[in-house]
Design a protein around this nucleic acid. Structure first.
Length: 682
DNA sequence: CCGCCTCGAGGTCA
DNA sequence: CTCGAGGCGG
């Protein structure tokens, strides 16, 4: 192969610069200079040259946005800095309350505080990592700590630069933002889909999120997705900006798009004004938003405010009032849950609320029905509470038809005809049938097989229904007596599926005590309580033999839970099922009884600044597991302070008071030593 | 609660 | 091609 001439090298450099610049102008500055045709022509020319001289191809070339198709699933990605959620403010009073909280904590006048505001885009949150200015990884939010690596899909977005612009590039930049689809893009995509196969997306948010989860990046590339940055999670070396808004401007300089509607305002009135103005413009923005993100602008103040459990104290999301629609209540169905709780569910004439079709809504209980005063046939107003769960807000009584029927709460279980009882002082009514009731049995089995319980692969809702309806399975123990041959006679269950299920059941037999206890479905015993019980008693026999007082000694177990557990294990049919399960081969390693050594018992520790290898919450948990208390402020009694980068006043105070300070490296070293029991005190 | 994607498997039809 | 299970995300 011939070597490229200097002329060719120059042309490649020029084309790349022009293409990058066109993207930047189009997506970041919103001032397109180049027509699409010109862009495509240059891109094709670059592709030709790169095809001729493959050595010239670099990963950040504009031709390299669409990478190799299908690889096996998306890898897990740990977020170095967790992606937190924000507290909500649902009205102007709650904005005022937020300002007051911030002001009180900082001991300054709230009306002087500067806040950075921007629209809260309704899309999918992602995190991008740039090393030496080059995009190296991109991931979804996931649960905030761990997301999915969707780098090859994110690379196809032209508003995501493959390399950052400018001379002074950070060594490391982790930027958070939202991937959205504009109304225009969404309409165009659906118009095309309608022509081709008739399958259309329900709303821009789902279209954006769905597009990101494609295994084939070529499909993602064909979707009109846009990225807009809202936060720098890591920026090294520290750019030295004083405010969040300056930092956002810097991201813009680096070639990242940020919100055009970003504004810095002062005090609660400034915030309320901004929210009102944006609310008025909402319909004309061209993309979906569900509110306003408000952040304390001064980064020093942000550090001082710090975090509570899952959210920063220095930010809040103002949510616009939920969209409401009216529809008719066609019927009410009473569903029976795992514990026998009877839930009235409104069957509604399907109606689109905020982009999704709603046809069911829980009415919760008899009190709620009475409160609403709702009848079958009524016109009702529906809203999606917290943007997710449909809710009947009120009845349009004036529209009530003459033939509206009263909703009669059943006195007998709609599934098994057992008596329905409602205990004194409780709002929920329950079917008294226990596992005699088919509905409860199905729910109990579903729970037993669920992922966090015994995790029986392939045993889903429909299959459980079929098994219960045929009376093949009455208790969890019956599951393990199923044989492949009989299963294969079920609809949609042939040889392969049956064998798989039998294998999955066999695999599920080896479990842990905590999972097993959780799987039993004892009232009020969730995953966490089950783990506590397992750890405390160590063996199932010890747990089964425990008296109420013994149970109450377990962490987070009070009289109510203790009574439920005690009663459960006193029931002969429960004991029989457990015996059968054990006879059928269910087994687990007996847990270590009691606590691990607690070398830090009685000590108080303080964490400040950011840690790289873990979140502050994780650090806290690990310290607590060692017996330490973790406090928010430094005092004379503080045994030690762990200071990550960005530590402020707490570090200064510790130094002043002569409290020992560990950096992250030192902290990790000690943690490992303590946890392994090599060291018993600090 | 709803929508979306992926996968494995079953059923249908040529 | 369709269905069910499983997972993700808001």
């Amino acid at each position: 192969m011939s070597q490229p001439e200097q002329k060719t090298l120059d042309e490649v450099a020029t084309l790349r610069a022009e293409l990058d610049d066109a993207n930047y102008r189009y997506y970041v500055l919103d001032e397109p200079r180049m027509t699409d045709a010109d862009y495509d022509r240059r891109l094709r020319r670059l592709q030709e040259i790169e095809a001729e001289y493959p050595d010239l191809v670099t990963p950040d070339s504009p031709t390299q946005r669409v990478g190799a198709p299908p690889d096996a699933g998306f890898p897990e990605v740990q977020h170095a800095v967790p992606m937190l959620s924000l507290d909500n403010a649902l009205n102007e009073d709650e904005i005022t309350a937020f300002v007051k909280r911030v002001a009180d904590r900082l001991e300054i006048d709230g009306e002087t505080i500067a806040f950075c505001c921007e629209p809260k885009l309704d899309g999918a949150a992602v995190s991008l990592v740039y090393e030496q200015g080059v995009l190296v990884s991109g991931a979804t939010r996931g649960d905030g700590r761990t997301g999915e690596g969707i780098t090859s899909n994110l690379r196809t977005l032209r508003s995501i630069p493959l390399k950052l612009r400018g001379k002074a590039l950070p060594d490391l930049l982790e930027v958070r933002g939202e991937v959205i689809m504009s109304h225009e893009g969404f309409e165009a995509l659906n118009a095309k889909a309608r022509e081709e196969d008739g399958k259309v997306f329900a709303n821009p948010r789902n279209a954006a999120a769905g597009s990101l989860r494609q295994l084939d990046p070529r499909i993602t590339a064909s979707r009109p997705l846009e990225f807009s940055a809202y936060q720098a999670a890591r920026f090294e070396p520290d750019p030295g900006d004083a405010t969040h808004s300056e930092l956002m401007a810097r991201l813009g300089d680096l070639g990242l798009r940020t919100s055009a509607a970003l504004e810095v305002v002062t005090g609660s009135q400034g915030l309320i004004d901004y929210c009102r103005r944006l609310g008025e413009r909402r319909d004309r923005l061209g993309y979906d938003i569900d509110g306003v993100v408000i952040k304390v602008d001064d980064l020093r103040l942000q550090r001082e405010l710090g975090f509570v459990a899952r959210a920063p104290r220095w930010a809040i999301a103002f949510k616009f009032p939920a969209q409401e629609e009216t529809t008719t209540l066609n019927d009410v169905e009473f569903q029976v849950g795992r514990t026998g709780a009877i839930t009235p569910v409104a069957r509604l004439e399907p109606v689109t609320v905020a982009g999704v079709t709603v046809s069911n809504a829980s009415l919760h209980n008899a009190d709620e029905i009475a409160r609403l005063g709702v009848m079958i046939g009524d016109t009702v107003t529906i809203r999606r509470a917290g943007d997710v769960i449909p809710q009947v807000v009120r009845v349009e009584t004036s529209l009530r038809p003459a033939d509206a029927r009263e909703i009669v709460f059943p006195e007998r279980c709609p599934v098994c005809d057992s008596e329905v009882e409602r205990l004194e002082g409780e709002v929920v009514a329950r079917c008294s049938g226990g596992l005699y009731c088919g509905a409860q049995r199905k729910e109990a089995l579903k729970h037993f097989a669920s992922r966090r319980a015994l995790d029986i692969d392939g045993l889903g809702e429909k299959l459980i229904e079929a098994l219960v309806e045929r009376d093949w399975v009455k208790t969890p123990a019956d599951l393990f007596r199923l044989d492949a041959e009989r299963l294969a006679s079920l609809p949609r269950m042939a040889q392969k599926s049956s064998d798989n299920l039998v294998a999955a059941l066999d695999k599920a037999k080896q479990t842990t005590l905590a999972r097993f206890v959780f799987a039993l479905g004892i009232r009020e015993v969730g995953e966490a309580t089950a783990a506590n019980l397992a750890r405390h008693f160590g063996t199932l026999d010890a747990l089964m033999g425990a008296e109420v007082a013994d149970l109450e000694a377990v962490e987070d177990v009070g009289p109510v839970v203790a009574a439920h557990v005690h009663t459960f294990f006193r029931q002969p049919h429960n004991r029989d099922t457990i015996d059968e399960l054990r006879a059928l081969g269910l087994a687990w390693k007996e847990e270590e009884i009691g606590e691990r050594p607690q070398p830090l018992a009685g000590q108080t520790w303080v964490l400040t600044g950011t840690l790289e290898s873990m979140t502050r919450d994780e650090g806290k948990e690990r310290l607590q597991a060692l017996g330490a208390k973790v406090a928010g402020s430094v005092s004379k009694k503080t045994a030690g302070v762990v200071a990550g980068p960005g530590a402020g006043s707490k570090l200064a105070k510790a130094e002043q008071m002569g409290v020992p300070v560990l950096d992250e490296e030192g902290f990790l070293e000690r943690l490992e030593a303590w946890e392994s029991g090599r060291e018993t005190e600090q």
